[in-house]
Design a protein around this nucleic acid. Structure first.
Lengths: 251, 251
DNA sequence: TACCGCTTGTGAACGCATGCACAAAGTCGG
DNA sequence: CCGACTTTGTGCATGCGTTCACAAGCGGTA
């Protein structure tokens, strides 16, 4: 069924066979950085910048220059030695590799605080990710337009997703509902899911899940706060031989 | 100044020297997974489960069992061979390593759609991350309580953050404001920042930044959609010798 | 007490990603 | 047209993270 849906639409800027093999070989980490480069480059293009060196671009993107060049080499050699890269050219090649020449219709499930924020988020449509469907269980919400799209009932997920050719599902439901919503999205043919619920989703192999987990992010930061505090404490141990609470610590 | 602030508060469950060295050595990737294990374990504890094996836990967390054991070994040996792990014990040790025995006061800057969602997000306070300050520039918002906390003006960021001992700053502003907000947070002594704005923040070495970038996540998914479509196309090439648009492709 | 089966903890091998350093290749000035 | 300078593209070494495989250790059982 996924194949059926795809078949009628693959008229989109087809990748050359050479590019196709390249795309397969791009490391996941590099893909994430390419997206960042793309944004930086777009910003530069908007400001009228036409050329950029790996050094400049890498600084703006906050990465090592060599790494940036290697990342770009994964998608081909589009720079000019001694000069740098043409911003426009780079933008269009990154967009092509990332599949941004095609629009990816997005469905948001769970129209709570976060769902509202996502539905209204201006960054999506502008970048080729039109939100075309919203879902919730709350009867009071059904039919109410949020960000211009009326909310559908979650039971209609399969029909609506198929009809609107949704390719990316965003889960913004409470944790208990997430797995069930995920299953429904999958059976509606959605193969890419962005999960905001703090739950580990179980999906078949052919479905790609990325998760955004606020609690985990906070706890990673917390770990670093604690590590810092400990380092500070270690220093004070070195200074006076006393632990943080005044007890002597063996060397 | 960070040291000053920390000094009066380091009465929190001090890490033993041995643990301190361990904490320094834990790989970043493992820290992120520990947070996930913690959530899964908490859920198990709530359901009355008292013991768990690495196999069970790894399945629930969606990772390899060996990796899980190695991750846990970074924080010490708290399992029993032949039996498994005590859920309570594991929870308390992970919490200690992640620094969750201490409360981390959070400030949210930018009370738009996302800021509202974050301020109202129930997952924070419950897990030791009380939101204690909200900031915005919009005069209409100042003083209005959101999620129980009145919004302060962004110009008061330094004073308010110092007063409420904010240790984590969350940036949910439009992109152009992000760097300036970040600078103000840093000068207010905040050393950990969670950034939702699609901007690469420049910060001093002693500040930890984690970013949540929706556009990047979507584009990574888009890349996978494109790769899949290409693979499907490749298969059809193998079947009939024709490319996606009917042109013959050399083998 | 001695054995058996089970699960942890970890040494070692592997693979991926990062960073260095330099040759290749282009531009620009003379 | 040539040489000097600049910047890309990449082979190679290094380090980190993952995975495997197995010895060590514990509880249960006879």
């Amino acid at each position: 069924m996924a194949a059926q849906r795809g078949e009628g639409e693959t008229t989109t800027t087809p990748l050359e066979p050479a590019d196709r093999e390249r795309a397969r070989a791009i490391p996941e980490a590099a893909v994430a950085r390419l997206a960042v480069y793309l944004r930086v480059l777009s910003g530069m293009a908007d400001q009228g910048v036409t050329a950029v060196s790996s050094e400049e671009l890498s600084q703006a993107a906050g990465v090592n220059a060599a790494k940036l060049r290697k990342d770009l080499s994964y998608i081909g050699s589009y720079g000019t030695r001694g000069v740098g890269y043409d911003v426009e050219v780079l933008v269009s090649h990154i967009e092509r590799i990332l599949g941004l020449t095609r629009n990816h219709s997005v469905a948001v499930v769970g129209i709570g605080n976060l769902g509202h924020a996502l539905a209204n988020y201006g960054g999506f449509p502008g970048r080729g990710f039109p939100v075309t469907a919203l879902f919730d269980v709350d009867a009071d919400l059904i039919g109410v337009p949020v960000g211009g799209i009326p909310v559908s009932h979650i039971d209609d997920i399969t029909a609506v997703c198929l009809e609107r050719e949704v390719s990316i599902g965003v889960i913004a439901t409470p944790p208990p509902a997430a797995q069930s919503v995920c299953d429904r999205l999958v059976s509606a043919g959605v193969q890419c899911i962005l999960n905001f619920a703090p739950v580990v989703l179980q999906v078949p192999d052919n479905v790609e899940v990325r998760k955004v987990d606020l609690a985990v992010e906070m706890q990673i930061l917390s770990f670093h706060v604690a590590r810092r505090a400990d380092e500070a404490a270690s220093v004070s141990v070195g200074n006076n031989g006393l632990g943080v609470d005044g007890m002597v610590i063996r060397p």
